[in-house]
Structures are given as C-alpha cells and as structure tokens.
Write a protein that binds this DNA or RNA. Structure first.
Lengths: 211, 211, 211, 211
DNA sequence: CATTAATCGAGACGGTACGTCAGGTCTTCCA
DNA sequence: TGGAAGACCTGACGTACCGTCTCGATTAATG
C-alpha cells in the first residue's frame, strides 16, 4: 500500500485513493508530531494532496483525526482462550497495546478533550469508536453464556447498563493507567485488574439475584 | 523550602496577587472558551496582567492549565458517612462533580493529551494532580481499618499496587463515563460502580489470603 | 525579464492592486506617524491587506519604505526655463519641495541610516532612488550643450565623476539645509546655492582646460 | 552648567564616571550593532550600570545617541597648512574620516531621521553638533583674512548666510558621498570638491562686489 | 555619629510591535 | 470539472524592547 500508487497512473481520478492516503498520512503525522503540532497543510503534503481536497472531505482537524484513529481500533479481536476471564484479559491487553501507540493516545485524547465543548464531535467519537467496539463485550458475553459461565439475559435494561459499566471501567482504567499513571498496562496489571472486575461483577450479580 | 528566600533576592519581587489572578482567569476562560480557544493573551487581559508576566512564570499554555486545574481538585474531601462503601461513594461523587465542570474536563483532558508526547508534562500532571489526591485513598483505608472494616497492612508493596489500581479504576471510570459515554456520573451510577469495585477488591483480597 | 511569466506559474496570482495600496498606505503612515512609529501591522490595516501579504512581498520595514519613497522622486521633471542656471534652479527647487514632505524626509533618512550597516539596502537605495534620478543631470547637460552653454563631452570618465559630484553636492546640500539646519530650501537659498555651484563647476572646468 | 551644582543637592551625588561609561558604551554598541539593534538594556549592561541610571539621565535612545555622537566631532581641528584651500581640504578630510566611522554615520543619520518629526531633537542636534562646529568655519575665515586671502567682513548678515551655506554644502556633500553614493570621501574627491566650492564662493563674492 | 535623602543594582511590571505560523477560504490554471 | 498550487485574511503565537516601578543596599552631606 504505497502513497504513490495514484501518482503512478496519471490522468485517473484518485478520489478513492485520496481518502486512504490522507488518513494514513494523518496517523503518520500523529506519530511524528503529536496532535498539537500536526497541521493540515503537512498532512496534505504527506498525502500528496492539495489542502483544498482535504477540506472538501473533512470539516477540520478534529473530524479528520477521529476518523484516522477510529480505524485503529477495528483491528481488535476477541480471542478464544477457553474461559471468560482469559478472553477478557486478552481483549484488554489488545486494547492496551493499541492505546500504547502514539498515534492512538495522542489523537484520541485530543479529540476527547475537544469534545467536551462540542457535542457533535463527542457523538461522532462515540459512534465511530466506542459504540463500534461494544461488539466485543456482547460477543464475549454470548460466548460465556454458551460455555455456561454466565446465565442468559433476563433484564435487557439491566444488561445494557452492565455493558456500559464494563466499558467505562475497562476503557477508563486502561487509559488512566497508560496515560496518567505513566506505567504500562502489562500482563500483570491486566491480570489484576480483570480479576477485580470479574469478581466485582460476579458479586454484584449474585447480590442482585438475592433481592 | 526555596534555595533563596524572596527577601534575599535583589530586584522587585514578583507580585503574589498576580499568580492567583492568572489562575483564576485561566479557569474562567476555560469555562467560557474551552481549551482550544483559550489564548494566553486573553488570560492575561482577564487577569489584568501583561502577557509577559504570564510567560515569565509559566512555560506555556499546558503548564498554566495544569496548575489552574490542579487547584480544583484540592477541594475534594473524604466524607465520614459511617462505612467504607458510603465514604467511597461520597468521594467519587465529589470527584464526578468536579469533573463535570467545564474548566476541569476541558483543561484536564487537553493536558493529558499533550502529555502523551511530553514526559515532563505528564510528570507534572501526576505530581500536581494525581499523586496529590492519593491522600483520599490512604485516608479512607486508614479510617476503614480503624472501624475494623479492613485488616491492617501486611505487605507494603502489595498495598501500594492496590492503591494505584484503585486510583486507575476510579479516576478512569468516572472520566470515561463523563467525557466519552456522555452520561452523568450520578448517584445511581456511582452506587453501582462502587459496589462492583468494592466487591471486586474484597474478593481479590480474600482469594489472595487463601494463597 | 523574469524567469517565468506570471501566467506560467500555477496557483493564485498575486494581487497587483495590493502592491499599490500597500505603498500608498506606507506613505500615508509615514506622514502621520513618521518612521519610528510606523508599524507594518498598521500599514497592512490601512492598505486593507493582511500582514502576511506584506511580509510575503517585502523583507521588512526598510525595503518597503525604500520602494514607497522611491516613487515620490519619479515625479521630478527638468523644467525648460531657457538657461542652464534656471533649469537647475527649477530642478533643485522641485527636489527641495519633495524633500520637504514628511513622508520623504522621515523615510529617506531612516533607510539611509539603516543602510550604513546593510550593504544590500544601500545598493537598493542607490539603484531605486539615486541612480534613477541621474537622468535629470544628464538631460540638463545635454540640453545645455544643445544651447551651446556647455562644450561637448571629451573625457567620459571625467564626465561621470562630475555628474557624481554634482549629485552629491545638490542632494547633500538640500538635505542638510532642510533636515539639519532646519531652514527651508526656498527660492532665495536655492538661487544662492546654484550660483556657487555653477560658478565653481565653471571655474574648475576652465582651470582644467588650461592644463 | 547645571542649575544646581552637585554639592548643593542633598543625598547621594550622581556618579560622574557613569556618564562617561554610558556614552562610551553607547558608541561601542553603535559600532557593533548599529542604531536599530542598539538597546538601552544592552548599553546599560556594557556600562556596568542599571537601566534606571540611564533613564535618570537621558530621556531616551535618541537623546543618548546625540550626546554620544556629538563628542566624536569635538576632535575636529582646523589644520594650519598655509593656505585657505589647503586648510579647508584638511578639515573636510577630517570630517570625512569621522563620518566614515560606523558609530558616527549610523548614529547621526538615525537621530537626524527621527528629528524630522521632533523639533526639540532637531534643535538638540543643531546645538550639540552642528552649531558647535561652526567654530571651524569662523576660525578658517579669520585665518584667511589674516593672511590676506579674504577681505574683512562688511555685511554681518551676508556673512552669516555664507557660513550657513558653506556648512550645508560641506556637510551635505560629504554625508551624501559617504552614505548614499557609497564611495569614500578620499583625498582626490575632497580636492575636487573643495576646488569647486572655493571657486564658486570666490566667484559669487566677486559678482556681488560688482553690484 | 546618626539621620536623611538621593543614588545605585537588580529585576518584575504593563505595554506594544515584532515576524512567524496555522487554519480555512479563495482564485487561477491545467489535465 | 475536479484538483494542484498557492495567494489571501484572520488571529494567535512566543519574543524583545520600551520605559516605569519597586525593592534593598549604598553613599555623602547634614544635624
């Protein structure tokens, strides 16, 4: 996948290739420069594209970076390691690995920061990134139910709340560990974290069942 | 403990009032404009101070905002509500309330984003904000031990790891809930979250004790 | 003769109107503010142009003012008053009149001052202003020769030296009178000065001829 | 000649050494940096003096430089070379030599430029520099009259006008030659210039006498 | 000899302009 | 007709210097 593919064939419309080239260039620039020093002019140059073309497709820096970062998380896969705990650990480790990449953490946090004053942007982030990855939680739960590790759903509302909570806890803890505490979310930490999470969820489910 | 007291240095001393005015102006500007539209020139004007004064004391926008935001979290107090669970819920709610304020979330996330490429900045954030508030966790645990809710410490290293984990989970989850999921971290959510957290920690401690 | 014609270059061409507007604004600002209070930001505003446009075309305040002032001297015309002495008096009076204008004296002296440390600037001044007006001396001499007031040239090198000397004396004396002595270079003064100049040149020519 | 002597005023007297050090530092800075890059802070540092001290004695950059440059011209001496023409040539050469020094030309032209909008400054320049050196013209004329080269004065007003004209022509021509034309005012040029000047003045005097 | 009043150094301060840079828009020409 | 090239306006950047100010510390002449 080279950036020069389009250039090799002059005269052809490159509009399809441009999108991919721009997003790739954006990630490349994020790695090298970080969010704050990334400029759209530079991205355009890297992508071999005019600034005009870039503005024709994205409203601004934030939107562009959301799209560029969102693609990163699509490579997440729920591994099948035999048990719910192991599967979750594997997924969390993958998430941590992506978040350790400079283009992910720098870009993601910046758009989240901006989204605190821009509801449309926050919605875009939620849709393109967060909501999109909830598939992992659902998939994991279904598999655990198949295995008999978890009982089938009874209360759909309660279920949705739990999924949200899991997501907030997993994503939040890994982000905080990686970015703020400054320590890597390595196997040992993920193991400890997952144990607390599952024991907590299990205990809460048991208590609720007693009611 | 400074290397030289203010009186010992020649020349006109720095205005103490200016510092406070600048930090207050920074928070005010964060509320109104958010991080990305905040300009140091504007902050200087609001504080009734020259731009040069501002640059003489802070290296840039990021450092200034770290200090301005750090002060916000100093008002956190661990309430005494009779039980560990209640105390934690109270503290988490307070934390969520601060994080709901625009100057906190906009400023905090922006500096965290920038700190992904600036180790000195990340260290400053950790020291000024995170490390500084670990007092709450320590205070809460001590109180719970007094009440007999928790056993006394045995392994200091394990203890420190647990404090870090708690902090990553609490701060991370509240931040994610507030900023990314876009739902308020209200009493109901905090209650559910705290229950899972405590049950998880308790269970993990029990399992460890069995070893 | 440019390496590329304007039409051959890609991209939006530079606005021709902007150049004229900027130079006019520069002269206007020189009149109102003088050299030292003239700011490029203000010039840009007056010209209805962005500061960046100004910097794209001129390297700095000095270069801009050279160009703005140079245009002033293009309106000099050698009058035909019937005799060499009268023609010179007329031209010197015109020169004095231009130099009496605030934009001319303030700007010209400032760039001359700066040119003492900047050879490129001095060359620019010489080319754009001084050399350009030597046409007056040459034209005057030719006309006097036609009238029979002056003999035809014999030694080109000597001739060039004389032109330079005339220029140094005329320009120097008028500038000094106007700016340093603080008295106007009015008709009476110009008459006296021109008489001394012509008698001196005539005498020197006669002496040389005797050799 | 101050309104009060230093001894008469109570309190610590001003350091006499500071004045000299400041003026010397100013000339030094003019040589190295030129007018436009010269800063009062830098001058103060060079002189080993606080900025405050400098501002207590001079109103600003212009006044300071006028004084610093004025001292340079005090070293002019009218040589006694046996004839009026030779004496003048000698004096003009000395003047040209001083004006060739960077601190003289850079500083002098700058204050002249500024004086076009500041009458007080122009008066200060005239008094401190120009008027002060008219002694040379008067001295030279007196000596020539003693020698019998020139007749004694008859019309004082005409005499003063002639002195002014001489000054404008000499100073103006040397300045223009040195700074604008960019060629040195060397012996050959000075010889030619002086010849024209004296022949012109002599011829004009003869014509006037015929009236 | 203590007082007193102006000096001195140091350096923070409020301003103003600098020259640069990025964001986004526009105009032009070319394929 | 879309796209590259690049000029354009806007507005903030961080720096530099200006001239003023506030300090504590000197430094004579005066009382």
């Amino acid at each position: 996948m080279q950036s020069r593919t389009a250039a090799a064939r002059p005269g052809r419309p490159r509009s399809a290739a441009a999108d991919a080239a721009i997003l790739a260039a954006t990630r490349e620039a994020l790695v090298e420069l970080g969010w704050s020093k990334l400029t759209l002019g530079d991205v355009a140059t890297r992508a071999g594209v005019a600034k005009t073309t870039l503005y024709r497709r994205w409203a601004g820096k934030h939107e562009l970076v959301v799209d560029a970062v969102a693609e990163l998380f699509d490579e997440l896969r729920l591994p099948d390691l035999g048990s719910l705990a192991a599967d979750i650990e594997g997924a969390v480790l993958q998430f941590a690995a992506i978040l350790a990449r400079p283009e992910a953490k720098s870009g993601l946090m910046a758009v989240v920061a901006e989204s605190t004053r821009d509801d449309a942007l926050r919605e875009r982030i939620r849709t393109s990134i967060v909501e999109r990855q909830k598939r992992l939680v659902l998939e994991g739960r279904a598999r655990a139910q198949d295995r008999g590790e978890l009982p089938p759903e009874t209360d759909p509302a309660e279920s949705a709340r739990t999924v949200d909570l899991i997501f907030d806890m997993v994503a939040g803890a890994v982000v905080h560990r990686t970015l703020v505490s400054g320590h890597p979310a390595d196997e040992e930490w993920v193991h400890g974290f997952t144990r607390v999470l599952l024991l907590g969820l299990g205990g809460a489910a048991a208590e609720s069942a007693e009611d």
